[in-house]
């Protein structure tokens, strides 16, 4: 076999892995998909049923009496925590990228950029530890009560301030985890050769450095910004350990305000597998596989979209 063919086969393993993951999750979750139908996504009830009852047959599947699977609260928790993270990470990430690209003396630039990039290197579970011992006490005792007091008139910011575990905490920790994706992709684009010719043109017309950056360079890299933000969205949707440790792991209810405990699809898989294994019919484990499948498909769609945008930008340049 030629060298070329053998590398092609091994390369197909890399590409095939993704297909195999989706395929096997679908196969394993198939009985659950048959049982739960489309209501799986629209109902607010994750109930294993009576663990001591005799299994009954519903729609051709053996389940425990009273078992019902609906993950609307997970979808809402995942989307809301990601939305909060994105709403903070994009402006902060853009600001930091602008500062690192233009506001820093050039000998310091690589090291200051590296410091922000290190945020991406910190493992998820270390974020969880930091959130658990530093962020939650601070937010729960100081910031959230103050926010309720001063900003309580705004919808979703009022009401009980909770204990510090919840939607906003998860969103804030996620922000730090995804912000390097926004900052590094954008900073690289801002110091690229195409950007420097635009910069020279704008400065020659009399614009100041900040005006050049804001009015000329930033609009020119907006496609990179969108691509980077979507990649960041993908990462926030699937973050597991940090969210698990700071979100409060709510079950079967929707958040009433921004301080309410939530669960995300990723953190729910970790927190529920032990109890799902108690189900002798195996339907709970298969329904969790369906959660994993839904999460996988969402992240595939989001990441494909981001990659198309970034490829398009690279091929245009």
């Amino acid at each position: 076999m030629s060298f070329r063919k053998s590398t092609a086969i091994l390369a197909s393993v890399v590409g095939g892995t993704l297909v195999v993951i989706v395929l096997f999750l679908t196969l394993y979750a198939w009985p659950a998909i048959r049982l739960n139908g489309i209501r799986f996504l629209g109902q607010n009830s994750w109930n294993l049923g009576s663990l001591y009852g005799n299994p009954i047959t519903v729609r051709g599947q053996q389940i425990l009496p009273g078992a019902h699977y609906g993950i609307l609260f997970l979808i809402v928790g995942t989307l809301l925590s990601t939305a909060i993270a994105l709403a903070i990470a994009v402006p902060v990430g853009v600001g930091a990228a602008m500062f690192l690209a233009e506001g820093v003396p050039s000998p310091l630039r690589p090291w200051m950029s590296f410091f922000v990039e290190l945020l991406a290197a910190i493992p998820s579970v270390v974020y969880g530890l930091w959130g658990y011992v530093v962020v939650i006490p601070f937010l729960g005792h100081h910031l959230f009560p103050a926010m309720v007091r001063w900003l309580g008139f705004i919808p979703f910011l009022g009401g009980p301030a909770g204990s510090g575990y919840g939607l906003l905490t998860a969103g804030l920790v996620l922000t730090l985890m995804i912000v390097p994706l926004v900052t590094t992709t954008l900073r690289d684009a801002l110091v690229s050769p195409q950007a420097s010719s635009l910069r020279e043109a704008a400065m020659a017309l009399g614009a100041s450095r900040f005006e050049t950056l804001r009015a000329v360079l930033l609009p020119s890299v907006r496609r990179v910004l969108i691509g980077g933000s979507i990649l960041a969205t993908g990462r926030a949707l699937g973050e597991t350990m940090a969210v698990l440790m700071v979100s409060g792991n709510a079950l079967n209810y929707l958040p009433g305000n921004i301080y309410t405990p939530i669960s995300t699809m990723a953190s729910f898989i970790v927190s529920q597998l032990d109890s799902a294994l108690e189900d002798p019919t195996g339907m709970a484990v298969r329904s969790l596989a369906e959660v994993a499948l839904v999460l996988c498909l969402i992240s595939v769609v989001v990441n494909s979209f981001a990659r198309f945008l970034l490829y398009y930008d690279a091929s245009r340049a």
Partner: peptide
Amino acid sequence: FLADVLVGVPSIV
């Protein structure tokens, strides 16, 4: 393309 998308698949999946 598949490799780039695989990077984004959540590790819990």
